[in-house]
Structures are given as structure tokens and as C-alpha cells.
């Protein structure tokens, strides 16, 4: 049976020779042409949120400085890791995955994230929950899908209590939003290191909201891993 690229449907030609032996373990989801369209983040980035920036701008970006100056938010989220830039290709893949509901794209996305996950010390992965209505509408939760594709299980400790559309609010509104998540299970996270998994880090407010709640409930450390830095 032939395997096809999950994006362009081109046939994936079988690997030959040595590379076939070495790469046997690694599943292939995209053709080389599509795979090359990811733009990996490398070089100097903000030490908090992984935003690409120039050396002269220091080690923390302006947004993160603002977050960390605010006593409410300081040190909730230790660090965000992002893998690729939010270019047109990434935008298309995420839109197809999340909004069109092409669940299987969680696999090539997770494949990109695996290496980074190995560098993080953690006890549990935690998905960002969706409201019940949104989850019914989409059919699945994208961050849970990524965790499954990473070969792990999401620790279900959060639920969403607020369902308003984030994108319609200004940054100031979003930052001072009342708590949007609720904790359902406290004991299991005590003194544990947690990694929040999501598709994009945009303003960081969703992730910080979740992180704050988890830290206040007794988690030792919360970081995040997202495919893209928006």
C-alpha cells in the first residue's frame, strides 16, 4: 500500500538504502516539499515565550517583561516552547486541523514537537480545555489530539467556565479577564511539573490563565509547548 502526504496527497516514495534502516522508526506524514514549508524557530528567542528576536533586544521580549512585572501573573508560566513560526503554511495546517477538523494532522504536528518535549522535565501533560459547546461543534479538542499523537495521555484537571470568543477582545481585556478555567482535581498535581500543550502561543494569556490556576493549586512548575509562535 502506498502512503500519501497528508497535506498535498503526493505519494511518499519508500526510503531506500541506509536511510530506510535508520529512519524506519520514524513515521512519515508529509512529503519533503510540504515538510520543507515549516519554518523552524532557531536562533535567539525570548527566554520566556520563544519569540524570535535580535540579540540587541536582550533576553526577554517586551510582552513578557510586562507579564512578569505584573504581580498577578509573574512566574506563573515558567517558559513557553514553540517549534515553528506561524507562516502561511502553518496557518493553513492549523486551520485545517482545528477548524476544518482534520484530526489526523495532529500526527505531523506532534512529530515536530517530540524533540522539544524530550528536553523538558515534566510529570504530566495538560490539555487546554474547550467549552462543551465548542468541543461538540469541532468534534474534538485540538490540544488533547496533539497529546494523544505525542503518544501520551492528557491529565484532565481543567475545565472551561467562560466561553466568550477571545479574539474579539483587546489585549488589555484579555489580560484582565476573570478566570476562564476551573480546577477539577487538586491532589494529583501537588508538587508536580506540568506542561500545557496547545497549538499556538499568541498573546500567552490563555496559557497564563491556566498556569496561574495550576500554580495556585499547588503545582511546582508549569511550562508550555506549542507548535507555533503566533
Amino acid at each position: 500500500m502506498t502512503i500519501n502526504c497528508l497535506i498535498c496527497h503526493a505519494e511518499l516514495l519508500p526510503l531506500l538504502g541506509w536511510s530506510a534502516l535508520f529512519l524506519k522508526e520514524k513515521p512519515r506524514y508529509l512529503c519533503d516539499v510540504c515538510q520543507a514549508k515549516w519554518e523552524r524557530i532557531n536562533g535567539h528567542t525570548c527566554k520566556r515565550c520563544d519569540r524570535p528576536m535580535s540579540e540587541e533586544d536582550g533576553d526577554t521580549c517586551f510582552d513578557c517583561i510586562r507579564w512578569e512585572k505584573d504581580a498577578v501573573w509573574a512566574d506563573c508560566l515558567t517558559r513557553n516552547h514553540s517549534i515553528v513560526e506561524y507562516n502561511d503554511f502553518c496557518k493553513e495546517v492549523i486551520a485545517r486541523f482545528k477548524y476544518r477538523g482534520d484530526y489526523i494532522l495532529a500526527y505531523p504536528i506532534a512529530e515536530m514537537m517530540k524533540g522539544s518535549l524530550l528536553t523538558i522535565e515534566y510529570d504530566f501533560l495538560v490539555a487546554i480545555p474547550l467549552s462543551t459547546e465548542r468541543q461538540y461543534e469541532r468534534g474534538f479538542n485540538q490540544s488533547e489530539a496533539i497529546i494523544t499523537a505525542l503518544g501520551e495521555q492528557s491529565l484532565s484537571v481543567l475545565t472551561r467556565i467562560h466561553t466568550e470568543k477571545q479574539s474579539k477582545k483587546s489585549r488589555a481585556e484579555r489580560i484582565h479577564l476573570p478566570q476562564v478555567f476551573q480546577l477539577v482535581e487538586r491532589a494529583v498535581i501537588q508538587e508536580k511539573s506540568l506542561v500545557l500543550i496547545d497549538d499556538i502561543y499568541t498573546t500567552g494569556s490563555t496559557l497564563r490563565n491556566a498556569a496561574k490556576l495550576l500554580i495556585e493549586a499547588g503545582a511546582k512548575k508549569v511550562s508550555s509547548l506549542t507548535i507555533a509562535r503566533g
Binding site: 500500500m1 502506498t2 502512503i3 500519501n4 496527497h9 485545517r96 476544518r100 477538523g101 482534520d102 484530526y103 489526523i104 468541543q135 461538540y136 469541532r138 468534534g139 474534538f140 479538542n141 489530539a145 494523544t148
Partner: peptide, 30 residues
Amino acid sequence: PSLFAQFPCARCQEEACTYCRNCLMMGRVS
């Protein structure tokens, strides 16, 4: 077969709800 996939579906609660990737752009059918 390469244009079908499965997902754990919140709508029907099946672990493997099969959907069509060929006409996904017209709204997912599963």
C-alpha cells in the same frame, strides 16, 4: 482508504469515528 481518517468524536462518543478527508472543505462528514 488514504482519504479517510478516524478520530475520537465528541458528537457520538465513539473512539474511532471515521471521516472523509476528500470533501473536508465542504464541512466534515463522519
